[in-house]
Computed example of a mutant assay.
Amino acid sequence: MTDISKAGSFKLGDRTVKRLGYGAMQLAGPGVFGPPKDREAARAVLREAIASGVDHIDTSDFYGPHVTNQIIREALHPYPA
C-alpha cells in the first residue's frame, strides 16, 4: 500500500486535504460512459485509494451519468467523520 502523506496538503474551501486525490473518471465504462465492466473491481479501487490516504475524490456527473457517484456511495458508505 502506498502512503501519500508525504505529498503534503492544502486548503480546499474550509477543509485541509492531501495534495493527491483520486480522479473517478476511470471508474465508468468504455469511453468514460456508463457502467464499468467489473463494478466490484471499481469499488475495490476506491477502497484501496482511501486506505492509501486519499481524502478527496474528483468526480463529475458526466462520467456515467450518475454511475461513478453510485459506485463511490456503494464503496465508501457509511462515510467516516
Score class of each variant (00 low, 15 high):
G23L: 02
G8Q: 02
R73E: 13
D38M: 13
R73Q: 10
L76M: 10
A49D: 05
P78L: 08
R47V: 14
M1C: 05
A28D: 09
K37N: 13
L46Q: 05
S9Y: 11
V67S: 07
P35F: 09
M25I: 10
G13W: 09
D38G: 13
F33T: 15
P78Q: 06
D61E: 15
I50V: 15
Y63Q: 01
A42L: 09
G31V: 09
H66W: 10
H77R: 08
P80Y: 05
P78N: 07
T68V: 14
A24Y: 01
A41K: 13
I71V: 12
Y79Q: 12
D58S: 06
E40W: 01
M25T: 09
G21A: 15
S60Q: 11
A7M: 14
T59C: 15
D3H: 01
A49K: 06
F10D: 00
G64D: 08
P36F: 14
H56G: 07
K18Q: 11
G64H: 00
D3N: 14
E74R: 13
I72L: 07
Q70W: 01
L20M: 09
I72D: 05
H66S: 07
I71L: 13
G31H: 06
M25V: 15
F10P: 04
R47M: 11
P30R: 11
P78F: 12
V54N: 03
